[in-house]
Design a protein around this nucleic acid. Structure first.
Length: 1013
RNA sequence: GGGCCCGUAGCUUAGACCGGCUGGAGCGCCCGGCUGAUAACCGGGAGGUCCGGAGUUCAAAUCUCCGCGGGCCCA
């Protein structure tokens, strides 16, 4: 399967320095990756649930050609989250096989380039055999590169047992399907006008052409063609005929007229008459003054059947049908002259008209787009180069009437970038128009994400029902398995066994069905005993990938495969461009063979943009090697950035986007983990594997939140919604970090195994372990880190992995009343912080009293007893009183003693905070200042959390009094085993820290680590 | 030339299907705070013509139409 790939360039920025936020993530991912490799976690995960419910999936095989770019990270990430989730839910995945799309023009072009070749002949000179070998080697090289970055981003597939579309057994399955189509009359040869690349010397399918439209400038020429059936002696009359492809003029066989359109004749140079559509007159003569006089008006219908002199008389034999005017519906008034040049071999409309009226064809080009000697003037010239010579010749003969240039979009070859031509050729088609209704009906059963594609872009394309040009005049592809008998009938071959029968003996060992081997095999027609000759084509590589759902199992040849005729895939995910690519070929093949939809759910993502929101493209130099991105930013940050974005549209995926997206959430989470671990090292409280039943309202609140998060995440992942899952988890990480942990920290430092402390450990460990499970499908590395560090298996030998565990199924009862009360508390905290700011009292300074009034009686109950301590601690107030509206309305709050918040119009509580600390509280606040400075110094000295110290203090004034009064508390807070307090100054300055002004007093201190007891 | 999607603060976005409080949030920025998570944490602030215009309505980010811009696709 192919996609709009652009080669990667060198990395745009250096790897992160040791202090960069992503460096801790990168170190973590390295550690995890080593663990996975050592314990073969991916292999064991893929082998899970051999008897579980089946979840069907097929990896859309990337083209193993060209280096991947950043955009290719997206489909990997968007497939992987769902597959991991399903595995954790106990599903059996069918299949996890990696797959590589091996055939086709891109590979051939790459080899041609590497040899410096310019045309197809050089391949024949080199030999198809060696050429195929080169192609195979190239495919293997690129598959390797793709596998590496796919594994690095954590996309776990079975890379040890991949399917290659070039594997003989895969191709045999493709042959089987082609024969089925042939038998059903859905695979037929025809002579049709198809887009053709003269350099690659092969037709292309519409979905390939679609990738190559580009603005270009072509010549715009208007010819005057003399009517030859005018009355003798009358005025000479010319048809004005317009074209942008002068090179097709030697092949002109007719002129088309719109029978319902209005035409005019005007008098031109030398008194001759010129005919063109009325609507075209103003285009050729924009100013009214210069516009010639109209001498006659005619309906198009009256112009039909006239004869004219062709632009190159004698080039091609005249017949009664040729060089006449015909009515045609494709003639438009919008551009040109309303008289259309018809060259049946070079236009779809032209060809159909030619068929209808019997014009025949004249194609003077060879297969590489060069003129043959049939047109001596330009013999040997490339078709585009011939334009100029032909125009000059027409000019010399006075046939060229006007000449300018014309800007329009025109298709170019998506691989070699040269202009395509439309050309009548022998081509094999899949007759999709015959099964159009079935295609639509099957598409109707698919769930599309985003939904609009179903009846929009994709549905419209299917509804057009265009036949699929399948054959390619190339070498490296699945050969079309159809042979001709000279007696005039055909044999389609659907297996190697059939081939062997026609061969009249066993096939060579390790038979390779590619060209040239397949054509070196002598086959004999069983009826006529004549040698069979194969149709010389290979097939569109998109047919290979579209066959992957069954061909990856070598179905129907291999026995006991899990493929089932009636079972669509449950899930596929690729980029938006696959609506014309793989999604389409899957639908056609599945409908033609099995008459059922190819998949149930399809996730279709947009393209990645750079940090400026620009499309990534080679010419802008903003494409990046995905491996470099992963090594610079980390796999999980990249994955989460994708999940958190609006990935069904195009979105930014540059370094900045990753840093501000997924990385942010992960550093916060890893900081929480680091907090947990560094404390756990001291206390060694066993982690809670089962849900704890905590008493602390803060813990009960967090578990209630967790219960909600588990349910929401599960539901989101079940419905393929990575965005909802990841944003739910992101918000929860914030809640843990900024409220639960913030408020719970003191509990972790309590002396001994207190109930409060153990409760905090148990709650946090349970939450982190559960979170690890929830995060496993989305951020597999981080999830593993959580699992290992919290369950304290710590990457040990034989440790189990979170990816071998089931998805969290715990559903604790939610306490909605508590959740509501807690959000009221959070709102209150915000209000009071503002009041403190207003009062100019810093948070470290304790205040006497907080009064909250205007509450509903129920709220007082809910918030009151259990949550008041949270407010006291968070806001550093000694007393909190909750009052109902009734009670609070009578109190007065003089502004010298209180700062007051009045309820807003929309309601909310009124709040009053006492303004000044008492002397006692002031001293307590000072003691906190001292403690803070001691802690800061401890940290600077890099002491361990549990190290005990000897502390010498020199303090004056209020500070001395505060130290005196709170000596014991200071010692306890700072783990001081030996405290010496003095006034004045230290005798020796060594190791002394000094603060000249702590609330007006000087403080000096010295810390020495105390000997271990 | 035609079709589909998107457009809300510098960035990522909620709200839109089903019209109704002052358009929420996170990041970034500025100011301040906190400090045994420290490139973490907390408060405040600046920053929005909800792409523009018209219509429907008592009321429009939300519904309708016409534009503009971006993306994708078709011819």
């Amino acid at each position: 399967m192919s996609s709009s790939a652009a080669p990667a360039s060198a990395p745009r920025s250096a790897p992160p320095g040791p202090g960069a936020p992503q460096s801790q993530v990168l170190a973590m991912e390295r550690r995890v990756a080593e663990f996975w490799a050592r314990e073969d976690i991916p292999g064991r995960a893929l082998a899970l649930h051999p008897n579980g419910p089946i979840f069907r999936f097929t990896e859309g095989p990337p083209t193993a050609n060209g280096k991947p770019h950043v955009g290719h990270l997206m489909p990997r990430a968007l497939k992987d989250f769902e597959l991991r989730y399903r595995r954790m839910k106990g599903d059996r995945l069918i299949s996890s096989m990696a797959g590589w799309d091996c055939h086709g023009l891109p590979v051939e072009v790459e080899i041609e380039k590497s040899h410096g070749w310019t045309n197809k002949k050089q391949i024949l000179e080199y030999g198809i055999g060696p050429f195929a070998q080169d192609c195979r080697k190239s495919v293997m090289k690129y598959a390797d590169i793709w596998q590496q970055f796919s594994e690095r981003i954590g996309f776990w597939l079975d890379y040890a047992h991949p399917y290659f579309t070039m594997d003989p057994w895969f191709m045999e399955s493709v042959w089987w399907s082609l024969k089925e189509l042939y038998t059903k009359g859905l695979l037929e040869k025809g002579h049709y006008v198809v887009p053709y690349c003269p350099r690659c010397e092969t037709p292309e399918a519409t979905h390939e052409v679609a990738q190559g439209y580009r603005d270009t400038t072509d010549p715009s020429v208007t010819l005057r063609l003399r009517l030859t059936d005018g009355p003798a002696g009358g005025r000479t009359t010319y048809l004005l005929v317009w074209t942008t492809t002068p090179w097709t003029l030697p092949s002109n066989l007719a002129v088309a007229v719109g029978s319902e359109m209005d035409y005019v004749a005007f008098e031109g140079e030398g008194g001759d008459e010129y005919l063109l559509a009325e609507s075209a007159l103003a285009r050729y003569f924009p100013s009214e003054e210069g516009r010639p006089k109209v001498v006659r008006r005619e309906k198009g219908s009256s112009l039909v059947g006239r004869t004219y002199e062709p632009p190159f008389p004698g080039m091609v034999g005249a017949t009664p049908q040729r060089f006449r005017t015909y009515a045609a519906t494709f003639v438009t008034a919008e551009e040109g002259t309303g008289l259309v040049h018809v060259a049946p071999s070079f236009g779809v409309d032209d060809y159909q008209l030619g068929e209808k009226v019997g014009l025949g064809v004249f194609d003077p080009l060879d297969s590489s787009g060069r003129f043959t000697s049939q047109v001596p003037l330009v013999a040997g010239k490339w078709f585009k180069e011939a334009d100029k010579l032909l125009m000059e010749e027409l000019h010399a003969r006075g046939v060229l009437w006007r000449r300018s240039t014309y800007k329009h979009t025109y298709p170019f070859c998506w691989r070699c970038d040269r202009p395509l031509m439309y050309r009548a050729l022998d081509t094999w088609f899949v007759r999709t128009h015959k099964i159009r209704e079935k295609l639509l009906a099957n598409n109707a059963q698919v769930t599309w994400d985003p939904a609009h594609l179903k009846d929009g872009r994709f549905g419209n394309f299917v509804a057009e029902g265009k036949d699929w040009a399948l054959s390619r005049n190339r070498y490296w592809g699945t050969p079309l398995p159809i042979w001709n008998c000279p007696k005039g009938h055909q044999v389609a071959v659907g297996s190697f066994e059939e081939l062997s029968k026609l061969h009249g003996g066993p096939l060579p060992t390790s038979f390779d069905p590619h060209r040239p081997t397949v054509d070196e095999l002598s086959l004999t027609c069983p009826e006529h005993r004549e040698p069979l000759v194969r149709e010389p084509y290979v097939i569109d590589t998109w047919y290979d990938s579209g066959s992957a759902p069954f061909a990856q199992f070598h179905w129907p040849f291999a026995k006991g495969t899990p493929f089932e005729v009636d079972a669509p895939l449950d899930f596929v995910a690729e980029a938006i461009d696959q609506t014309r690519g793989w999604f389409y070929t899957l639908l056609v093949i599945s409908t033609a063979l099995f008459d059922r939809p190819p998949f149930r759910h399809v996730l279709c993502h947009g393209h990645g943009l750079d940090d400026e929101g620009k499309k990534m493209s080679k010419s802008k130099g903003n494409v990046d090697d995905p491996m470099q991105v992963l090594e610079r930013m980390g796999a999980d940050p990249t994955r989460l950035t994708i999940y958190l974005s609006s990935y069904t549209e195009s979105f930014r995926l540059g370094d900045l986007a990753i840093r501000q997206g997924g990385l942010r959430m992960l550093t916060t989470l890893l900081n929480v983990l680091e907090f947990y671990r560094s404390n756990w090292e001291v206390d060694r409280v066993p982690p809670a594997v089962e849900a704890p039943a905590p008493k602390d309202p803060l813990d009960r609140w967090l578990l209630s939140r967790l219960s909600d998060v588990v349910a929401t995440t599960d539901q989101a992942l079940l419905s393929f919604d990575a965005r909802r899952a990841s944003s739910t988890l992101e918000a929860f990480v914030q809640e843990i970090s900024t409220w639960w942990l913030r408020r719970s920290r003191p509990r972790f430092w309590e002396e001994g195994p207190s109930e409060r402390k153990v409760g905090a450990y148990r709650t946090l460990s349970f939450v982190l372990l559960t979170l690890g499970g929830l995060l496993a499908p989305l951020a597999p590395y981080t999830a593993e880190e959580l699992h290992q560090k919290v369950s304290s298996t710590d990457f040990g030998k034989g440790a189990s992995s979170v990816h071998l565990e089931p998805f969290p199924s715990w559903r604790g009862a939610r306490d909605l009343a508590l959740e509501t009360a807690m959000s009221d508390v959070l709102a209150l905290v915000e209000t009071v912080r503002r009041l403190r700011m207003e009062a100019g009292v810093r948070a470290r300074m304790p205040l006497e009293e907080l009064l909250v009034g205007g509450l509903a009686p129920g709220t007082v109950e809910a918030m009151g007893p259990s949550l008041v301590p949270l407010l006291q601690e968070e806001l550093n107030v000694k007393r909190v009183e909750m009052m109902t509206a009734e009670r609070s309305s009578t109190r007065e709050f003089p502004s010298d003693r209180w700062v007051v918040h009045r309820p807003t119009e929309s309601g909310g509580p009124s709040v009053a905070l006492s303004r000044k600390p008492s002397r006692e509280l002031f001293l307590e606040g000072l003691a906190r200042e001292v403690v803070r400075r001691v802690q800061m110094t401890r940290k600077e000295l890099r002491l361990a959390i549990s190290d005990r110290i000897r502390l010498e203090l020199w303090a004056e004034g209020d500070l001395a009094e505060a130290v005196q009064a709170h000596q014991e508390w200071i010692s306890k807070e700072c783990l001081v085993s030996d405290l010496a307090v003095a006034s004045g100054s230290p005798s020796s300055p060594e190791g002394v820290r000094s603060w000249p002004d702590v609330e007006g007093s000087k403080l000096e201190l010295r810390i020495v680590k105390a000997p271990n007891v």
